[in-house]
Amino acid sequence: MKAHPVFEGDRLRATTFRPRRRRLFVSFRQRVGTPGNFDEARPVMGFVGNGWAHLHLQSRWNDWFVNPETEALEARLAEFTARYEQVVAMGFSMGGYGALRLARALRLTRLMAISPQFSIDPWVVPFDRRYRAEAAGWDATSGDLTHRCTEVGGAVLVDPFKPLDLAHGRLICKAFPKLTLVMLPCGGHPATRAIRQGGRFDWLKTELAEGLADPRAVGRVHRKVRRQSESYWRHLAEVARWHHRPALSAAAEGHAKALSEKASVRPADRA
């Protein structure tokens, strides 16, 4: 499938697939372990295969899409997205922040932000020290979401047992009043790991495409599938240890081990 460049800078890149359609899905590169290069953009077939155009945004470095090229990217996105009847987005962690930061330029109507940050500025989020290296030299004015709020609807998905993610989620929903904070206990970071392991991640994309009429439905699906997720049980074991509940922790570890062993058995080895 042909990729069409929308913006090509030294630090930011935007690539689209099937741009002539009337509805647009936007995805974002999340924080990577070894930054410094752009990835090859690939279409998200769950959207492209169902009549949507797809736009993928990347930052070469882990800078939360805030750098000297941000304003130029915003101007290009505002021009590019003017043709679409709907623009929806999904972003994980840094990508979730990127969706919020660029929501106005993208003309977002609907968003699913998964374990996003409200900021990485130490003055704004002094409680979160995870991203202090990336925050060095960060442009706090350009990165401020307070004055970039929009009426975008949708969901912010967080694991409430990840207190830093929960704090960011609450700040985001205060600033973006039409977003709903949805708790996915022991989902991890990102909070949708159990949903993915439970085979319902495609359902998430369908919900986003079809309107996400009830954001809390994501929480209900999480509850249905979490018992089949090794990640869920590992996180539950960790939480139980924090709360000095050794029996629960041991039981959860046992469930996680059983699911791991089940997954490792090849079909030919099964009776």
Rank of each mutant, 00 (worst) to 15 (best):
P185D: 14
C186W: 15
C186S: 07
G187W: 06
G187R: 03
G188I: 08
H189M: 11
A191D: 08
R193D: 13
A194S: 14
A194Y: 13
A194P: 10
I195A: 10
I195Y: 13
Q197E: 15
Q197R: 05
Q197F: 08
Q197A: 12
G198L: 11
G198C: 10
G199S: 01
R200Q: 12
R200W: 13
F201G: 02
D202I: 00
W203M: 07
W203K: 01
K205A: 13
T206C: 00
L208R: 00
L208Y: 06
A209R: 05
E210P: 01
E210L: 01
G211E: 09
G211Y: 07
G211C: 13
G211F: 04
A213I: 05
D214F: 03
D214S: 05
P215L: 08
P215C: 11
R216Y: 09
R216F: 08
A217K: 00
V218G: 03
V218M: 05
G219E: 06
R220H: 02
H222Q: 07
V225I: 04
V225L: 04
R226V: 12
Q228D: 14
Q228R: 10
Q228A: 15
S229T: 04
E230W: 02
S231L: 03
S231I: 00
W233T: 07
W233M: 06
W233E: 04
R234E: 14
H235Y: 14
L236G: 04
L236M: 11
A237V: 05
A237I: 07
E238P: 00
V239L: 11
V239N: 01
V239H: 04
A240R: 05
R241N: 10
R241Y: 06
W242Q: 12
